[in-house]
Amino acid sequence: MKSAEITAAVPDFLADAAAEPTSEPRARILARLRLRHLNCIVAIAQERTMARAAARLHLSQPAVSKTLSELEEWAGTRLVERGRNGASLTAEGEHFLRYALDVRRAVDASAAALAREHPAQAAAVRIGALPTVQTAVLPRAIVGLQAVMPGVGVKVEVASNADLLGALKAGDIDMMIGRMAEPASMPGISFEYLYTESLVLVARAGHPLAQARATLSLEDALAYPLAIAGEHTAPRHHTEAFFESRGLTLPAGCVETQSLAVARLVVMRSDAVWIVPQRVADDDIAAGLLAVIDVPAPRGVEQIGMLRRSAEPLSEASGAFAEQLRRAILV
């Protein structure tokens, strides 16, 4: 790629570096900046460790470190923070990432044009979703999109909120359905509120607690095995906080899993009680497969919304999916 072709990839903090005695002038940076530099910063943002970024690029880790060092030398500032928890972009790194992604998208579009690939053939909406959201609202939105745009595919990535936010910033997904992150992690990201998540206790239809006529307490539910969210998840945090507020602790023998499918089958085949986001269980409740146990539960614990890159307009397909998602919430 010629240097003139990547002028758009050079943000202000690199372009203005000529004002610093130790920085490269814009012309020298343009003469040396290559697509591999842009691929490097994108891979680090996507993988969040230097080792995985190197593997993604099919390079050695020293080669990736050298490429990053060149970028940081030209910028006159650190673009990536490396620590025990991996590699994360600094504010300056995220600023540069946006320009790098613009060039990457232009290159991809150019390759598609040269290959004479029809836009409809490549059209796909890339969605990130929390585990508790994937069954709660996505299926209705996907079915709705297929009805209005049958030629458009949908690619769904299910991961933690932090991983999805990283994928969104790196351009791996077009939007995500998740939670608002800390303000420091939200520059360049917009949040559109969809619904407030509440937890309920459910059990299989015919469970003794589902048939009880007397007033039940939370302690009554604790007489049965519990299926709860795995550690380091928001539903687990809210469950533990709710128990503590009532002077209780999680009992021994809980089934702890982040797999909704595993928890659901355990509950359907036993007397276990499941503490789960209400929207996850709604369809099974409506079908008479699960029943709500009428005991106190954490209510209104989390706002769920649609997150996207603020500066980048949604494609026609992504915009159509967003509209179907809004309609799915109202069902």
Rank of each mutant, 00 (worst) to 15 (best):
M1N: 08
F13V: 03
A17L: 01
S23K: 12
R26C: 07
R26M: 09
R28C: 10
A31T: 13
R34N: 12
L35Q: 15
R48I: 11
R48N: 15
M50P: 02
A55V: 03
R56N: 06
S60Q: 06
S60T: 08
V64C: 01
T67A: 15
S69C: 09
S69E: 15
L71C: 01
E73C: 00
W74C: 00
G83H: 11
G86R: 06
H95P: 01
A106H: 09
V107Q: 03
E117H: 02
H118A: 13
H118S: 11
P119W: 00
V133C: 13
V143K: 07
V143W: 03
G144W: 13
G144P: 09
V152I: 13
K155Y: 14
V156L: 15
V158Q: 07
V158T: 11
A159C: 13
L165I: 04
L165V: 06
D172I: 09
M175Y: 02
G178D: 13
R179I: 15
P183L: 12
I189Y: 08
Y193E: 12
Y193I: 12
L194H: 14
Y195R: 03
Y195H: 08
V202D: 01
A205K: 02
H207Y: 03
A210P: 01
A212T: 13
A214H: 14
L218K: 15
A221I: 05
A221S: 06
A223S: 15
A223N: 14
H232Y: 09
H232R: 14
T233W: 11
H238E: 10
F243P: 05
E244L: 11
R246D: 07
G247S: 03
G247T: 04
A252V: 09
A252R: 13
C254T: 12
Q258C: 15
A261W: 03
V267I: 00
D271Y: 01
W274N: 00
P277I: 14
V280G: 04
V280M: 12
D284G: 01
P298V: 03
L307D: 07
S310C: 05
A317R: 06
G319M: 00
A320M: 10
A320G: 11
E323G: 03
R326I: 06
R326Q: 12
R326C: 04
R326M: 06
V331D: 15
